[in-house]
């Protein structure tokens, strides 16, 4: 069939939009930051996310990738104590910051959150769990600093950016409540 037949489509992905493929990274930086309490340096192209640097350069595969673009929370890590999405954080922007991943959550022995998740059966496939743990840890630390004990509803809201497909969240909320009790919350609810 000739190309000018209306039923013929010549297709090259993105060509209609005039996109030129770019594959070569020229802007590669050495990024230094604190990772789970230790100083690290990693060479990362500017377009690499923190998630990619952690997983594919630093070998910390505990941080997971689920949705590509900030919709699921599986890649949640803490930067300077706060829960953020490593899939939407450029690795170079972590320079000088304090990054914590699930690998750094328990020092020497499991963190109370990990123990509570284990006790309660809060992890089924476990794929969302590292991100869930990092969100929960940030939330509990913040509440504790403010001297507050979080309600179950507040915990659910704090985990609102972490999708789980296995559990229906029942045991995850149970576990965070249990860990909060163990860690000792603040005063009023």
């Amino acid at each position: 069939m000739p190309d000018n037949d209306p039923n013929v489509l010549r297709h090259r992905l993105g060509a209609a939009a005039g996109q030129q493929a770019r594959s070569e990274a020229r802007d590669v930086r050495v990024v230094a930051f604190t990772l789970n309490g230790e100083s690290v340096q990693v060479a990362a192209p500017a377009h690499w996310t923190l998630l990619e640097a952690l997983r594919y350069r630093l070998g910390l595969i505990g941080t997971k990738q689920g949705c590509d673009k900030g919709d699921c929370g599986a890649c949640t890590v803490r930067v300077d104590g706060e829960a953020v999405l490593s899939c939407l954080t450029l690795a170079v922007m972590a320079a000088g910051r304090r990054v914590e991943t699930v690998e750094g959550l328990g020092v020497g022995r499991p963190h109370p959150l990990q123990r509570a998740f284990d006790d309660c059966g809060a992890a089924q496939c476990g794929f969302c769990t590292p991100g869930m743990l990092m969100s929960a840890a940030a939330m509990l630390d913040q509440a504790r600093a403010a001297g507050r004990t979080l309600s179950r509803m507040e915990i659910a809201a704090g985990l609102g950016g972490n999708l789980c497909r296995c559990t229906g969240y029942v045991r995850i909320l149970d576990a965070v409540e249990q860990a909060q009790r163990e860690l000792g919350g603040g005063g009023e609810r």
Binding site: I61, G62, T63, V102, P110, D118, C125, P130
Partner: peptide, 12 residues
Amino acid sequence: RKIDAMDRMTGV
């Protein structure tokens, strides 16, 4: 406890 849960929760 699930026999494989802790490894999943510690990123191992």
